[in-house]
Design a protein around this nucleic acid. Sequence first.
RNA 1: CGGGGCGUGGCGCAGCCUGGUAGCGCGCUUGUUUUGGGUACAAGAGGCCCCCGGUUCGAAUCCGGGCGCCCCGACCA
Length: 430
Amino acid sequence: MRLSQSLIPTLKETPAEAQIASHRLMLRAGLVRQMASGIYAWLPAGLRVLNKISAIVREEQAAAGAQELLMPTIQSADLWRESGRYEAYGKEMLRITDRHERDLLYGPTNEEMITSIMRESVKSYRELPQNLYHIQWKFRDEVRPRFGVLRGREFLMKDGYGFDLDYAGALLTYKKMMLAYMRTFQRIGITAIPMRADTGQIGGDLSHEFHILAPTGESGVFYDATFEAGDPAAAADVETFYEQMTTIYAATDEKHDLAAWEKIPDERRREGRGIEVGQIFYFGKKYSESMNFTVTGHDGTKIFPEMGSYGIGVSRLAGAIIEARHDEAGIIWPDAIAPFRAAILNLRQGDAATDKICNELHEKLGADCLYDDREERAGAKFAEADLMGHPWQIIAGPRGAANGQVELKRRATGERLELSVADALAKVMS
RNA sequence: CGGGGCGUGGCGCAGCCUGGUAGCGCGCUUGUUUUGGGUACAAGAGGCCCCCGGUUCGAAUCCGGGCGCCCCGACCA
């Protein structure tokens, strides 16, 4: 993609409303624009991030046996009256009336809807277990939206719902989802820690939140340093994995257990701030019972399926990652979800040898690279590339172009290498 | 929902107290210059001063009402 023909409106100065790093950088790097309080438009580069996160989520959900569907954003109030949450949910729910005076709402979550879909079609124990998810925009009318996309009112969430015949099955689904989540976060390139959590509006009795560590996080977190070492998803099987995840200490301030904390050796105690990027719940028959969803068991009796729900804040992740990975110059994207894997900086637009090298690079690297072909000073190009946080920068100028050399810069480390065009390409694509 | 603040070209801000017809920096356009870390000079374009009403000969400025946005706290993927 050529920068000269792209809508990537970077800002030299920080808009006054942005207080925290991720918000400032998302605006400055041209990823998002605010359209109303807590409501954002995702510009082309920002959308690429959302799409890359979603793609990884999809792959890991598929690997865990979950099926993707797509439910609407607008829901009927009647559905929510069945579960009793239409009244219970309060002002966070955006309520809408259509031209026929029917009560609708913009979905803050989808337990009722998925249960309704399942109960229409699933009648036999033979059809369970099933696990379904979608990636869809949600709306929660927060009292005070803030921190850019970290606490928006409209946000993109992956929400999944598991249906099992019994507690054992539901617990296994819960464990599988925890594993899928840890793999997802790992592939995205961040460290997330599962922490025991309250169940809030969703209800139920077993829940974990996944936090990524960042000094500006909204929750205080306490954890055993063991989480920082090794590969959390490397366990031989899901039971071993779950055992490890739930025996090593980790809790948010709400659930912090001083007695357990003090048993951990001093040097392994870690205290910090966390940003919640996902949460999983087991809540049993809460919705199957209230909404009368049953399947017939092999002995002919009716069974209320056991349920759980599984959420990842996709749009929040985009902000949270920046919060965890940036410096004074800008964003430091992990390779897996950077809007562009590499940027080509043409330091002398119009210099024949330089242009030739850049065009060749652009062609070979394809759509996942951004070619800065603008008529700008070198300094401006460097500054903007650092701001946007491309994992790799390929810097081409007349100095090196004469003998076929370019400079390759790694954003995360600042490391630079003088390489031939072919070697630079090989490194970026590996 | 309690407390505080802000709204002036695209962005960051000054002007408001003490009313007299809008200014600075960045960005944008054109030309020259510069050419490896946000270059310099020159000439331009661009503003219902958030909205409505009031006071006044005259309102960005004073008064009343409304809307929007931000920050702190309580609440939340």
